[in-house]
Write a protein that binds this DNA or RNA. Structure first.
Lengths: 245, 245
DNA sequence: CTTTGTATGTGCGGCACCGCACGGATTGTA
DNA sequence: TACAATCCGTGCGGTGCCGCACATACAAAG
């Protein structure tokens, strides 16, 4: 387990990296870097949460399954955030499922250890709380986006968010997967993607998407992407200097 | 100011009423019962929050104004909740406007006093945190509802939520007001309301709505109403015995 | 009683997305 | 090389909501 002797500088999760050294040293021994597989279910609905995750290269999304059987995303987190605010905020259950949307790694920590650290470490506490506020902003914006914006706009927004997490212009992603996140038909995604391809904004083929024109992507997206990003930056500006690209 | 010598039993806000006597006595002197007028703006966008509100008979909604100028509700609170989780959770600003949706009263407390009480009073802290969790659940469900459910269903949901706060079967409310909350056209609300009237579920005329058939209302509403209510009950069950009707 | 304003009813064309069906294209596997 | 599986393209009818325009009905004020 010499791998757990990691330096703070190498931490690829922004929230953990923002901790002061002393608090990081306190929490560090409890962290375990784990591999998350695609489609792995980290939280089942209504179950008690055992672990909290701080993703580094993985992406995790929170899914809600409606009575009609349609599943739809209500939140997403990657290296900018964490999965498990409910463990320190109150009752550690919720009516949602957490699924790994992109394979990769994350730091895992026991829920009980998080609760302890939350009480002992003042900065950790504030960072978690502030992250919770960004989460509220994110979910609020999704509510608005779902009401007001077209599939085309939402697709662009989603691709941009994805890029912020992955930071590679090419990544694996089928139209079907996108449709499940956005809560629309696969065909609607295909049509929207075709339009973007015609405009030279993206290229894609059989589950690989490449982003070509970021300006075009931004102007085709709804404002929700930037609103959420700006709020994240502002709320956490005390700890994180700038939304690193 | 002898009015401020209120007994805990008479407190009409569920969160305050749930406090243990000692903590209530601590916070009580800071509370001031104020009248809130219809359409009064309590928070302007991006402004620093001066006060936190615990409504008793008033209802407050959080509005977001999109780039297109459409304003749409992302949250609502009444005697079950509070306005101002951001004051203790982190940065006390947010990109939303808080407007009084139904005139009435609320206990008002200075943001600085809330922060102090939050640190000193353990139960107050936990109640606020748990309420924050219910808020997240509520907003998440709105995101889902906006994506999946019809105006008819959302209208029913909204009427039920309204009843939970007002507890009178008849109340003032125009189709126009509803349309602003739901983020749809006024005409769409009129058509949906007409359908409900035909089914004998509600009656209405010129800004007065009367609920006639609660079972019908429930079965015409989407599941979102009950999901949110159940989560509220569960998350706060430690403090609030049952979702009082 | 008339006027003015507000609240609601109704119709029409348009659009975005739906569900469904099927066809074509590329990739992995035997 | 053949086959199966996956991914994407496309078309069709249907529906829910849109924006707009206007008609109607009631209410308060003069």
């Amino acid at each position: 387990m010499s791998k757990s002797k990691k330096a703070k500088e190498t931490i690829q999760n922004q929230l953990l990296a923002a901790l002061p050294q002393s608090e990081f040293d306190n929490i560090n021994p409890k962290l375990k870097l784990v591999d998350l597989e695609l489609n792995e279910v980290l939280w089942e609905m209504e179950e008690k949460r055992e672990y909290v995750y701080f993703p580094t290269t993985a992406m995790i999304c929170l899914l809600y399954e409606s009575e009609e059987g349609v599943s739809i995303e209500v939140g997403m987190t990657g290296r900018h955030g964490m999965l498990g605010v409910v463990t320190f905020i109150g009752d550690s259950r919720m009516a949602k499922r957490a699924v790994v949307q992109r394979e990769g790694q994350a730091y895992r920590i026991k829920a009980t250890d998080v609760e302890k650290a939350f009480l002992e470490c003042k900065d950790f506490q504030e960072i978690c709380m502030r992250y919770t506020q960004t989460l509220i902003a994110q979910i609020s914006q999704s509510a608005i986006c779902n009401r007001l914006h077209s599939v085309d706009q939402q697709l662009c927004r989603y691709l941009l968010v994805n890029y912020d997490n992955i930071r590679t212009k090419t990544f694996s992603m089928t139209h079907e997967q996108i449709s499940n996140v956005l809560g629309v038909r696969r065909e609607s995604v295909s049509v929207a993607a075709a339009r973007l391809r015609e405009s030279g904004i993206i290229a894609y083929s059989r589950g690989k998407i490449t982003l070509l024109d970021f300006k075009g992507l931004l102007s085709s997206a709804c404002e929700c992407y930037e609103v959420v990003k700006d709020q994240y930056d502002r709320i956490l500006s005390k700890y994180i200097s700038v939304h690193s690209k």
